[in-house]
Structures are given as C-alpha cells and as structure tokens.
Design a protein around this nucleic acid. Structure first.
Lengths: 333, 333
DNA sequence: AAGTGATATGTAAGCACTTACATTTTTAAT
DNA sequence: ATTAAAAATGTAAGTGCTTACATATCACTT
C-alpha cells in the first residue's frame, strides 16, 4: 500500500495525497477528508524511508549516552525521549561506554542515520585532552549537538548544565563552618561536571586554609571498590569527618564504610551525595544530596533544539542552579 | 556527496559502488579497494533513507519500554541496545508509560518507522484483559515481536522469560518451613510476570494450609506509599513475619517500614525482593532478592531475533531459571 | 456572460539508493 | 588461437515519497 494506491482509491493525484500527508493548506477540506478516510480504511502508513529521502530528514534525534543502566543517565534518557516524542521526534539510543573509540564509533553510527541532532548525555564526554573532543566538534559541524552537563568554551555546541561548582563549594563551605573541618572528595570521572565539582570542593577548602593534599580521590563506580578504597585509606591512618562525592552511588559506598567502621553519621562524619537520585532515599541513613535539576535541563535541551530547528535564536549555554536536599547524613539546620 | 559522485571519481558505474556498499562478492578486489578509498577520501556516508527505500529495511529495532527510568527496565534497555548494536542493528527507544492508549500510540510510531522487529520490555504489557493485548498481536502480524518477561499462550509472539512462579514458590516455601509462617506478598502490577509471582506465592501458602485472605496486596511504585500502606496494615492489627515482593523497590519500602516499627530483620521478619538489582546492595540491611537473569534473557532475545532474520528455526518461548541471592534480610542457611 | 484572481489539483522531475538483466572482460580449457 | 564458462561491470527500471511548475476549477466582479 503506497501513495499511488491511495491516490487511485481516492480518485486524486499522488501530489494531493502527499499534500494531505504533509498537512498542506492547499487541499480542499472535502478532498482531505476523502483521502484521510481512504488511508484510514486501508490502514496506510507512509514509508519513512521514502519520506526521509524526499524531505531530507525524518524527525529523529540521536541520543549518545555513556551508560543507560546508570540510574542518573537512565533518567536523562527517559526525560529526553519523552520530551522529544512530545515534539514529534523519535530517539535513536546509542550507549557508548567510556572508551573513546567506542564513543567515536557510536557518533559515526548516529550521523550515518541522518539524525536531525545529537544529544550527548553523561558529562563524561568532555574530557581533559582536547583531541578527545574532536569527534564531538566535527559532529557539531554537521548537525546541532547538545551537551547535557557539559560545556566546551568557544565551541559550536549547545550546553545545558547545572552550576555544580557553586553547589559543591556551598556544601563544602557549610560543612567546614559547622566544624566538619576535615573533608575529602570522591569523584567518579573527570568529566566537565566532575571537574567543576572537584574545583568547587578545592576552592572551599583552600579558602579555609586547608591543605588540598590527599583530599581528592578518583573511584571506580563499583560500591565495593569505594568501600575498599576508604577502608585502606582509613587503615593507613588517614582521618576525615566529611565525605563529599560526585554521585549518590559513591556516597552510599561511603555510608557503608562509615557504618562498618562504627563512625556515627552525621555526628562523627557527614556524607553528601550528588544527583539526588532515588538511591538517596533507599540507603540508611537517607542521603543528603545535591539536586542538579536533571529534568529541567532535559526539558530545556529539547526546547532549545526545537528553537534551533525553527531558526529562532538560542543561547549557547544555559546554566541552572543546584539545590541541596538535606536528609540524614548531614546535620544542617 | 552521493553514489554518483563516488562512481565518477572512482571511474566505475553506480551499480559497482552500490555493490561495494553492500559487500557483494561480485566486485573485483581491485575495484573494491579503489571505490572504498574514494569513499574514504570524501568521507562519504550512504544515505540511510535511500538505502532503506531500496532495501526495504535499515536494520533498526524498536524497543518499547514502559519506563526506562525504572532501574530494572533501564538495565534491560541497556543490554538490548548493546547486543543489537553488536549485531549491526540500531535501536529506537519509545517509553510508553503505563496507559493503554499511550502504549498503542508508541507501537504505531515504531511500526511507522519500519523497524525490523519490536521488543517489548517491561512485563506490564501482557495484561489481564485480552483486548489490551490486541495491539501487540496486530504488530506481531507485521514484524517479529519479542516479549521480555511476558508470555501469551498460543500467540505468534516470541517470549523470553524467567520462571518467576517457581522462584517465588521456592522462597515462600523455604520461609514457611523456617518458621516464617505468616507471609504477605506485595506486587506492583499484575503483568504476566507479576501474576506468575503472585501465583507462586499463593501455591506455596495454600500447600501449607494457610488462608490466602489478605495476604496479597497491590502497591504503587512509590516508596512512601509502600511504607504508608504497610503502616496502616500493621496499625489495623494485622501481623506478618515475612514480606515477599515483586521488585526491589517495594522490598526496600518494606525494610524501611520494619525498621521504623522496630521489627528485627531477619529474626523477627524476613524480606525478599525481586530482580536482584543494584538497589539490593544499597539498602540496609542488604536485601535478599530473586535474580531473574535479565542479561541472559536480553542476550537470548537478540540472538533469537537474529535467527528469525536468518530464517532459522526458533522456539516461541524460552524460560530460564531464577536464582535466589541471599543477603541480610533473610536467614537462610 | 466574460474576465479576473484565488484556490485546488495534476504532471513530472527529483531524492539516493538497489538489483534484474544485459554486456563486457577475464580465465581456463582445448 | 579459439571458445566456453565464469567473473566483473554497466544500464535502466524500480523503491515511495516531495514539490516546483503547469493547468484546471471556482468564486466573484463587472
């Protein structure tokens, strides 16, 4: 069943059928109804490939995500797909993992699918080494590329993110002022946002005149690794009374560590997570966490994309403010 | 840059270029190399829409998922996308939510995208009312439809699932034999697998001669609702010493409830989750949970799909065995 | 009733590929 | 060197849609 069949059955030309398909105003109401009812009766579905050929696009967006099984990224994917679909776009998902080559391949794949734009989810994309960003910049020359939780100065990328630097600076300062004067920071990966978090932490402690030495540590995503790491740090004689992490999983590892060592939370040690994922309420005690407004960022990203498609003007960078969600692992008033 | 440009630059016909594109053996090695290098130099990417038109397909699979922000379903989506991509297929994701109409619309959307198959993730798809399954069966007439964690007797759907009935029957029986003689079951939704879990529970308790009355309860997915529900059940005088749930989130709600009431886990009350998600280790005490082999099911689903595409013969239903992962909310030996 | 502009419809040429069939070239056997 | 079969390549007709341009129809005006 194609446009020719429909045109015959409706007694019109294929151009008219096509116009109906594309909501053209240049069809009389009578004809439109006729054509639509023929389509309905024959449960006709236009062929996307043919339309894509003719139109040069078929309203699909590529979502490049490091790991959609990560609870935070999974939420991002969910919000994005939902909002895109509401705007008439569908989503091709591609999970890259954390290897550069795999990311590049996935990007190539999405570009070859002629997606109208590409959204990068997971701040792990913008890395320290500039050459690791090239494939993103190149993609940006072909289609609009949106970064969630990332930013690249002076690039043609569109960025929606949260002010993680400020957020971490703020909690760290508050903890310091409250007597938790010996904090450490655990992070997962030095992505753009990871870097911001770390810098926020460092700024706060340096303002208090603390030595940053041995206060910042990279951890694997596995909870047991986090526990092991903290155990060995502790057993080597190192002491600390606050742990600020770059995501909630790490913070839960920290909680497990503290409980196992008999440290009291939050009196003896404060713990702050990041992302304010559902996990924050699953653990015990429930986790104080920085909410970085993921849903808002995703909605904004999709809105921006639509404006770009409409050739409206658009900011290259939009930054939201995080919010500290206080629970039981800290004793802020 | 299209196939004509390439053919000119390589000094061959478009048919030859197309053959190179399609890995046809009917091209000499010399010509193939020549064409490939011209493509490379001009960084040519074949147009998916044109290829899709000519070939009638472009190796894309639709993934219909109730809610990809659900930690269990997010994992399924992750495994599926990964395995599909390894086999040269890309994935269009569509999150339906739990409303029938929305599910139907998403299915239509995916079919209109001419996906080569559709995978339904989230057992919520096969419901009690037969008419709610019609849209799935109709889709099954057009393309292969695979069900993850679902089954529909006598249909043309391909199903990969885990024997949840047996799994729940087994733990429930073990708990009963261990003296936890007053169990209740909480479930999220009466999907196919939800039904299996419930039936497994009921069979176990009826074999022990217990009254099933008031032992099985539907809960919302929200943790606070679960806690509230159990609170009011408890406050109304109802007592129980084992809670078997249909997912880990519910079980964590149960843990929170038990701790708040001062019930001792696992001596006073045993709690068993389902899915063995990461969550099971985040809570306190860590949760005993039924592992229903999601990764294996997903891999099997993709393999099955590839066999279908190759016209190899394939089982309509494949069932795996679950495994009980013992942690701290039960005291099995 | 003829003429005008607006509106509706049709024709045909893209869009970038695939592939059956026809033709040419190569290889190997005589 | 001749010939047949096999291999490589080319030609041209799809694939199902969009849309510029041409043409037909309609509603008014005079």
């Amino acid at each position: 069943m194609n446009i020719y069949d429909i045109s015959k059955k409706a007694g019109v030309s294929i151009a008219t059928v096509s116009r109906v398909l594309n909501d053209s105003p240049r069809v009389s109401e009578k004809t439109r109804d006729k054509v639509l009812s023929v389509m309905e009766q024959n449960s006709y579905t236009p062929n996307v490939y043919a339309r894509g050929l003719g139109l040069g696009s078929m309203n699909t967006i590529g979502i490049l995500c490091a790991d959609s099984s990560d609870i935070y990224l999974a939420n991002a994917v969910y919000y994005l797909e939902r909002d895109l679909r509401q705007h008439g776009y569908s989503s091709i998902l591609c999970c890259t993992g954390y290897e550069l080559e795999s990311k590049q391949n996935c990007m190539k794949l999405l570009l070859s699918k002629r997606t109208d734009a590409i959204i990068l989810v997971g701040s792990t994309f913008i890395e320290k080494r500039a050459e690791h960003n090239n494939y993103i910049l190149e993609a940006g020359m072909e289609v609009p590329v949106m970064l969630i939780n990332g930013y690249l100065e002076g690039s043609n990328l569109y960025c929606s993110l949260c002010d993680e630097h400020q957020a971490v600076y703020d909690v760290t300062s508050r903890l310091l002022n409250q007597g938790f004067d010996n904090p450490i920071h655990l992070y997962r990966a030095l992505s753009y946002s990871g870097l911001q978090k770390k810098e926020g932490f460092l700024q706060a402690i340096s303002e208090k005149g603390l030595n940053p030495q041995d206060r910042v540590h990279e951890c694997s995503g596995d909870m047991d690794d986090v526990i092991d790491f903290l155990d060995s740090l502790y057993d080597s004689g190192k002491r600390f009374n606050a742990i600020i992490t770059s995501n909630d999983e790490l913070a839960i590892g920290a909680i497990k560590f503290a409980r196992a060592k008999g440290l009291r939370i939050p009196e003896g040690i404060s713990i702050v997570g990041h992302n304010n994922s559902k996990l924050a309420r699953y653990c015990e005690p429930e986790l104080t966490s920085i909410d970085n407004k993921l849903e808002m960022i995703c909605i904004h990203t999709v809105t921006t994309l639509m404006r770009i498609f409409d050739n409206k003007n658009v900011a290259n960078k939009t930054m939201f403010s995080a919010e500290l969600i206080k629970r039981q692992t800290t004793s802020f008033n």
